[in-house]
Design a protein around this nucleic acid. Structure first.
Length: 408
RNA sequence: GGAGACGUAGUCUAAUUGGUAAGGCGUCGGUCUUGAAAACCGAUGGGGUGAAGGCCCCAUGUGGGUUCGAGUCCCACCGUCUCCGCCA
């Protein structure tokens, strides 16, 4: 959510941002309704002031008439307020100057790339390898839950668990507070993090309940401090959590859906920060460095792209995607996404902190560290000519000594 | 699931039979001091309006209602605690 004063004073800037993001937002209409609201509010205040002055038994009749007028005026005020909020809540975040202009993900700007080592044999895709080794079962997943679900089995499950544990420990050592969060949540959480209304069709709603399945632990970790006032001395607040994540993937289509790339449920270790405004960029870069260090330790090639204005998503201020190299697939695929949300989420969530007795909205930063996709990348990158896969050295302490997965 | 109690600001705690939110702590500013502490003084939620001093409105979990007037009374919802029941 953007500061209402900023919208009033900079309507052209907001329009420019919407153009760059390739999205609609009626700033003029907002300002119209905002003006109506303020006018009605002024009248409302005056009537209330009058009522307060008259208070007393002798003025009972007069007050009743004023109250009637107040009620009528309040309707107008509420109406204008709702209309402006409807537009307001759908306004995207401000844009960092670093965001490149572009329409689709093809316009994302590559800013970093590691060296790719091509194998001397024709590599297979993870779903083929997983099937042959009996560690990834797409067919059973579809049988039990439908398309977009799968089983990790045996050594595959061990690897998934190992990667999650490695990720969590990696972040605990960097002073993140680990959490287990609810994986169902109320709508306020999704609104506050900007997933509603922007990606509303992406979330699963529980029938007959007011609950939704989370699409990421970012939602529940940010909402942990909903309606709270934090202390400046406690900043930054760093959290991590492992949770399953659920996404409908409505509207997703195309050939790039082969394998387990696009699924309805996956595992994720997330990094989250609440920072003072001056430091969000620093922590955003730190999160990206964490990801680099982590992938480097797994020895997987990757590149980093600066996500362009049209592909950024409305709530994000600046976003870097990390795309791991998938030899079997023969291309880079997004495995991580690190975003600076600026104060957008804090405003929507009503999270502030106290500085010199003034309430200031903190900035929030989030980034992936581990998902199933990273394991898919491991599988494709560590496949050997004989069909076996080696397990990255850093994971050995987490796999109970398992170092190689062989065909049986 | 049943019964009862409770929800006040950054935090802790007040508020006759309904009469318009009092304090403590913390924080910030100031006085004093070589500096600090202590002490003392002031400030310390949101919004609107004004060039400014200022003025006004809203805010006691949320939303309604009764009343000239609601923290207080009534209804619904959310949450917390206690007891009972049920299940691990």
């Amino acid at each position: 959510m953007i500061d209402v004063k900023f919208i009033r004073e900079n309507p052209e800037k907001i329009k420019e941002i919407c153009r760059k993001r390739n999205m609609e937002c009626d700033v003029d209409r907002f300002n119209e309704e905002d003006l109506k609201f303020r006018k009605a509010k002024l009248k409302n205040d005056e009537l209330n002031a009058l009522k307060n002055r008259l208070n007393g038994k002798e003025n009972a009749e007069k007050i009743k008439n004023i109250k009637k007028e107040i009620k009528e005026n309040a309707e107008k005020m509420k109406d204008a307020d709702e209309k402006r909020k409807k537009i307001w809540y759908k306004m995207p975040n401000l844009l960092s100057e670093k965001v490149p202009y572009g329409i689709t993900d093809k316009d994302n700007a590559e800013i970093f790339r590691t060296e790719i080592k091509y194998p001397e044999f024709i590599p297979e895709m993870h779903d083929e390898i997983g099937k042959k080794l009996g560690i990834l079962d797409m067919k059973k997943g579809a049988q039990v839950a439908g398309k977009g679900f799968y089983y990790w089995k045996g050594a595959g499950a061990i690897l998934m668990q190992a990667l999650i544990n490695y990720g969590i420990n990696f972040l605990i050592q960097k002073n993140f507070i680990p959490m287990f969060t609810p994986i169902m949540t109320i709508k306020d959480t999704l609104f506050g993090t900007g997933y509603h209304p922007f990606f509303e069709e992406e979330s699963y709603k529980i029938e007959n309940e007011k609950l939704y399945l989370i699409g990421t632990s970012e939602q529940t970790l940010i909402a942990y401090h909903m309606n709270e006032t934090l202390r400046e001395k406690d900043m930054p607040k760093l959290y991590t959590a492992y949770t399953p994540c659920f996404r409908t993937e409505a509207g997703a289509y195309g050939k790039e859906n082969r394998g387990a790339f696009r699924v309805h449920q996956f595992n994720k270790v997330e990094q989250i920060a609440f920072t003072v405004p001056e430091e969000s960029e620093k922590y955003h870069m730190m999160f990206l460095e964490n990801v680099k260090e982590f992938i480097d330790s797994l020895r997987i090639p990757y590149r980093i792209v600066n996500v362009c204005s049209g592909d950024l998503g409305a709530p994000a201020y600046l976003k870097y995607d990390v795309e791991a190299w998938f030899p079997g697939f023969g291309d880079f695929r997004e495995t991580h996404s690190a975003s600076n949300m600026w104060d957008y989420q804090a405003r929507r969530m009503n999270i502030k902190y106290l500085k010199n007795n003034k309430l200031i909205y903190p900035h929030t930063v989030n980034s992936t560290l581990v998902t199933d996709r990273l394991l898919l990348a491991i599988i494709e990158n560590y496949q050997k000519k004989d069909g076996n896969i080696e397990i990255p050295e850093v994971l050995h302490t987490y796999t109970g000594g398992l170092k190689i997965i062989k065909q049986c």
